[in-house]
Design a protein around this nucleic acid. Structure first.
Lengths: 362, 362
DNA sequence: TTGTATGCGTTATCAG
DNA sequence: CTGATAACGCATACAA
């Protein structure tokens, strides 16, 4: 049995910075004990000054504050997290920062969390489900207290591992009515149903679609479904040669519209999965000598900054991406503070009818 | 003197999860001890399996790995960081994610660090120096092992506090030859000197400038300097009414060009601080019935995605923002591994002569 | 109001 | 190759 506990030299590691340190090594960061010693108080008081200032006598408080500042000391997050059992870190898992839609969400979340002293950990999974699952694991290991994840098309174990930790999370950019997850976003299916209806109501019957890859992307799949549903209601469908699926880029928009217009009959309208694709479609159509919207109607999605500036300005749907970020942050913050906010009403993107849609020129 | 160290019930906190836990409380996350117990090994072995697998007998290793996976255990970062004295976190400090230029840099850095098991902490200071200084403090408290910071126009104490911690850092988007900081970027002054020269060589003599706010932004100031220097070499200057400084937005580009063209004499060319401003200028000039570049030459900067797609395509300078992120990450990684990479050659943005510049129509 | 002592979860050292 | 144990830096219950 361990009997004695004298201060005899146990086989402890190397001497500390506060000990006799010859000449070597870089200066260690100051610790709470160092500040305590310098301010001639106990380490507990130093801690209190930073966590419960009101429980410390003003005079002492000022002294500690002053010496801490002089020594450049701040509580070290790792030690603090361990003792407090709170990391004050939340994670955001998005496909990519190269899309201003997600960049805006992250920016808004970051700002909202920063106000509450919470740091945002970021990971981009590049539309790769394995990557996403891996990133979430890493974040859990880092002790994130909450998670915001774009989309719900993820490996089941991703959500399972989050739920196993009983950590609040929220799915963004999605809002299926019957989703098992707390969602903040809009109904992608409904949104594209609205767009398709807009064109149908104008009298279009041959409608093309240029859209992002649907594989492993619930949001995009829902959009395509929405279009299909709206057409079906009028007894119409999308002809295979009028459906182009590929990376969202201006160039893909261009080449897709070029291919479609070479078919017979060509579509009189094209629904694009986002504004970049629509932009490409618009540019290519004009380059081919077509008049938009006279010869071809075009719709986008997202309402990015340039869309209203185009000639003609793009008909699209506006989504407030910053608002999504703010709401996601607010929801997670509420969860962390114990309340369990009940409802998450969907955002409703609004159709902005501008200059690229009109009645078909038959 | 503290004499005994028996295992008597000291006034310790609440019972642990592994202890007799009646019914209450949520299940705690598993710890290394739990895995050790389940796998019938010591906690040290569990740790080794995850850090020095080769020092553990294969049979035992597999057993530990299996039980760890079964229990969903991963080493908790806070404890690990404390013991290891390494957080494996680096910070990125940028103005905003709403500019694709910075978003691209962050994305590239994140990817590069993720490969090495390093997590990126992000902060956006919104062009506010106090915010930036504060954010850096917070990151240091979180134990970041390295920092990447956009620009060098920051409060001196920002850099001082970093240097006090002896933490490697790098300034991005800047590359003054005589900077005291390690920089990864390009010479903004030189770049805009090149642009101005391009226009001067075409024969322009009355040149306007539409640029972002220079206050507290070293990069923008350098750009303006570059233009001024190039003009001065030809005995020219910027007339006050031909210099518009304001937020970078398409709208500001529009209103600025409109104002300039109302002056007498109007400029025959406009240099814009970035592509968004140039885009606005181009759209407004066309809306006013001018022919670009016949009546007015326009240049941008950054070469964002739409620039080459405009009609006419925008003359601008191309910067590889992803490359800046990659280089920044590579540099910091090298520092963390002990080597001190000597030189950081500047990136050289290339002038892309497209359709918006031509000889002036006198 | 202040100080003492203990635990947070992991890694690393050293003895076996 | 494995196990016991002392840090790591801080926060907090409890005693003073």
């Amino acid at each position: 049995m361990p009997a004695m506990s004298e201060r005899d030299p146990k086989p402890g590691p190397a001497p500390r910075a506060s000990d006799a340190r010859p000449v070597s090594g870089k200066p260690r960061a100051p610790r709470a004990v160092d500040v305590a010693a310098a301010a001639e108080v106990s380490i507990a008081t130093v801690s209190r000054v930073f966590n419960n200032p009101e429980k410390v006598a003003p005079a002492i408080r000022e002294r500690v504050l002053a010496t801490a500042k002089a020594m450049g000391w701040m509580p070290h997050a790792a030690g603090s997290a361990l003792a407090r059992r709170r990391t004050s870190i939340v994670g955001a898992v998005i496909p990519t920062l190269d899309n201003e839609v997600f960049a805006a969400q992250v920016g808004a979340m970051q700002a909202a969390f920063a106000d509450r002293g919470i740091t945002l950990l970021l990971s981009c999974f590049n539309y790769d489900q394995d990557q996403a699952a891996h990133d979430v694991q890493a974040m859990l290991a880092r002790g994130v207290e909450a998670l915001a994840i774009v989309g719900e098309a993820h490996r089941p174990d991703l959500f399972a591992s989050i739920q196993a930790r009983h950590i609040p999370y929220v799915v963004t950019y999605s809002h299926r009515p019957d989703s098992p997850h707390p969602c903040i976003g809009f109904d992608n299916r409904q949104a594209f149903h609205t767009i398709a209806r807009h064109l149908l109501d104008l009298g279009h019957e041959t409608i093309g679609v240029i859209i992002q890859p649907t594989a492993g992307n619930d949001r995009v799949s829902a959009r395509l479904d929405g279009v299909r549903a709206a057409l079906a209601e009028r007894g119409l469908g999308i002809r295979p040669q009028h459906l182009c699926e590929g990376e969202w880029s201006i160039d893909f928009g261009r080449q897709s519209v070029r291919a479609m217009l070479a078919t017979d009959p060509p579509p009189t309208a094209v629904i694009c999965g986002n504004d970049y694709l629509a932009l490409g479609a618009l540019l290519e159509a004009r380059a081919m000598g077509l008049s938009v919207p006279h010869d071809l109607s075009i719709t986008g999605f997202d309402d990015i900054a340039i869309s209203r500036q185009l000639d003609p300005p793009l008909t699209t749907m506006h989504v407030d991406n910053h608002e999504i970020g703010r709401r996601a942050a607010a929801y997670l913050l509420a969860c962390l503070e114990g309340s369990r906010p009940a409802k998450l009403p969907p955002l409703v993107p609004t159709l902005i009818r501008r200059g690229t849609t009109a009645v078909p020129h038959t």
